[in-house]
Amino acid sequence: MSRRVALFLLIFGVWSWVIWITFVKNLWASDQSWAPDGSATAFFVVHLVLAIVSFALGTVIGVIGWRGLRAARRSGHREPSATP
């Protein structure tokens, strides 16, 4: 894996966490998330499951990127230059 691809995967993993943390905060504060008796609605449960899956995928993708960057650094892998 090239350093560029590894960096992209790492940034994607971090971005995924930032976006979904914000989403969960907004979900928690939403009136649609809670029934009048204080229990969670189906809307809340479905969107929380989506967020959890996205956290897991973002973590896996970020770890792959991190490992790719470390491997590229150890091997001294360089990007091919654009000029001949």
Rank of each mutant, 00 (worst) to 15 (best):
Q32V: 10
T41M: 01
V53Y: 10
G68F: 02
A6F: 04
W34G: 00
S54V: 09
V53D: 09
N26Q: 13
V18D: 05
L27F: 11
G62S: 06
W66D: 06
V60T: 12
V60E: 07
A40W: 09
A82E: 12
T22Q: 13
S30D: 15
L9E: 02
R4I: 01
S16I: 09
R3Y: 02
F8P: 02
W20A: 07
A56F: 15
L10E: 06
T59Q: 04
F23K: 04
Q32P: 00
E79Q: 06
Q32W: 12
I61N: 06
R70K: 10
V5G: 02
V18E: 04
I21G: 06
V18N: 02
H47F: 15
D37Y: 00
D31N: 14
S33L: 04
P84H: 07
A72K: 06
V24G: 05
W17C: 01
I21V: 14
H47A: 07
V45F: 11
G65Y: 03
L69K: 01
D37W: 00
P80F: 06
V60L: 13
G76K: 12
S2H: 02
G68R: 01
N26A: 13
I19M: 10
A82R: 14
G58F: 04
V14M: 09
W17S: 11
A40R: 10
L50G: 14
D37T: 00
S33Q: 05
K25S: 15
S75C: 00
F23D: 05
M1K: 05
P36V: 06
S54C: 12
S81N: 10
V60M: 08
R73E: 14
S54E: 14
H47N: 15
T59H: 07
A42D: 10
T59P: 00
P84Q: 09
I19T: 05
L27A: 10
F8G: 08
L48V: 12
R3G: 06
S16N: 12
A71N: 14
L9R: 01
G13M: 07
R74T: 09
A29K: 07
S30W: 11
F8S: 12
F43G: 03
R3E: 01
I61K: 06
W66K: 08
H77V: 13
A40T: 03
R70M: 08
V60D: 11
A72F: 08
A29W: 07
G13K: 04
W20S: 07
N26G: 07
R67A: 04
I21S: 11
S2T: 12
W34L: 04
V14L: 05
